[in-house]
């Protein structure tokens, strides 16, 4: 079966900066992969390459078997990649409803927008109360919910979730991961970028660890907990 996402020998960076050095990574259909590593290891860049925000200097990117190397981000989105970016990932000047409308109209067609809005607000009651409020006035947790609400209704083949738990209270992190689990159970593949490993490990099928822009370790989540701490903190010599 073709993997939803496949990066082959990808090197990428920003101008003179190389952030990735030959990364190969697959996300299978229906699989949940956690991408771990210290900050600066290149996790976010992998996410950006996977959604077309950063074009690889070398190597290829396939989405659902289609070669999208160097294509614009909108083609990744149309091929079924949803990317909840690190930090703010909603349009802060648009209202909650407009944020959703923008995406739904493109993904589902204008006829189904209202129905989809209904679904989204059913799933996230707290957003319903704020539907005419600019998204920038939402709390950090609500903003993440908003980006998840979009994905939940559209149920794209792949969701890339970059540091969704960053800076949030534990209780909200729990809720976000519950939603991610729901998405996963409905068939969406996940690529979860996390610095805080514990939640990610509970959800994913496979773990990929990055170090200095290269894949350092790959394996089952059961072994990962030990390995992660080891690699980050018990750096004896060359690790």
């Amino acid at each position: 079966m073709t993997p939803v996402l496949e990066l082959r020998d990808v090197s990428a960076g920003y101008g003179p900066f190389r952030a990735l050095f030959g990364v190969t990574l697959q996300v299978g259909d229906g699989e949940a992969v956690a991408l771990l590593g210290a900050n600066g290891a290149g996790k976010t860049t992998v996410a950006r390459v996977a959604s077309g925000l950063v074009a690889p200097e070398d190597g290829t990117v396939h989405v659902g078997g289609e070669d999208l190397t160097g294509a614009a981000p909108y083609r990744f989105a149309r091929a079924g990649v949803a990317h909840a970016t690190e930090g703010r990932s909603v349009f802060s000047s648009l209202t909650v409803e407009e944020n959703l409308r923008l995406s739904f109209r493109r993904a589902l067609g204008s006829a189904r927008v209202d129905e989809a809005l209904g679904q989204a607000f059913d799933a996230f009651a707290s957003l319903d109360r704020r539907r005419h409020q600019p998204a920038g006035t939402l709390s950090g947790g609500e903003q993440r919910m908003l980006s998840l609400a979009r994905v939940l209704v559209e149920s794209p083949p792949l969701l890339i979730a970059d540091e969704l738990s960053l800076g949030l209270a534990p209780i909200i992190v729990d809720e976000i991961y519950a939603q991610l689990a729901r998405l996963h159970s409905e068939g969406t593949s996940l690529l979860i970028v996390e610095q805080h490993v514990s939640h990610a490990l509970g959800l994913c099928d496979r773990v990929v660890m990055l170090e200095h822009g290269a894949v350092a370790w790959e394996g089952a989540p059961e072994q990962a907990g030990e390995r992660v701490a080891e690699r980050i903190f018990e750096h004896g010599g060359d690790g």
């Binding site: 738990s165 996390e194 610095q195 805080h196 490993v197 514990s198 992660v228 701490a229």
Partner: peptide
């Protein structure tokens, strides 16, 4: 500092470090 559990938690999330 690197060995302290508080620091590990900051990096890895609650219960992250062994």
């Amino acid at each position: 500092v690197l060995a302290s559990s508080l620091v590990r938690e900051a990096y890895l999330g609650p219960g992250g470090g062994p």
